[in-house]
Amino acid sequence: MKIKDIIRGPLGLAITMVMICGFIFPVVVTGVGQGAFNYEANGSLATLSNTTVGSYLVGQSTDSPYLFHIRADSASGIDPDITVANASMQAHRIHNETGISMAYFNRQINNDTKFTMFFFGTGYVNALTLNLHLIRHYHKSISQYGRMYRNVTAS
């Protein structure tokens, strides 16, 4: 093997590939993704009164007694979902604090439930979805909890 075979071919291939795989590919995927699925490509952001308040795929930790909490022991630390059982338990707490009826919570949790095996398995709900519904639905009566929903009252 000549030195040329060791340098030109392998080094040339490395430089060509860093351009194709490391630059052109991700840039083209970004272009197509941003064009075709803009909402998902930018992180499935959640808005309230035209203000971005988070992402449906990044759990938010809060200790507000008027909101649904995400779990503290989760693998990623930002698991956005809670089990239906957990959600119902927390609904009781919010009901006791605010007086919002359990019928509302049961209906809302039921509407937003997804399953670990598509149609079967453990039911789970996105905590941010529940919180957003809660705030939108009780927008008029939230002034008394205003301190907790600062973003909404400010807008």
Binding site: L45, T52, S55, V58, T62, L67, N131, M148, R150, N151
Partner: peptide, 11 residues
């Protein structure tokens, strides 16, 4: 972003 409770969160 700013969450409901006023905390800052990095997406």
């Amino acid at each position: 972003v700013r969450t409901f409770t006023g905390a800052f969160q990095t997406i």
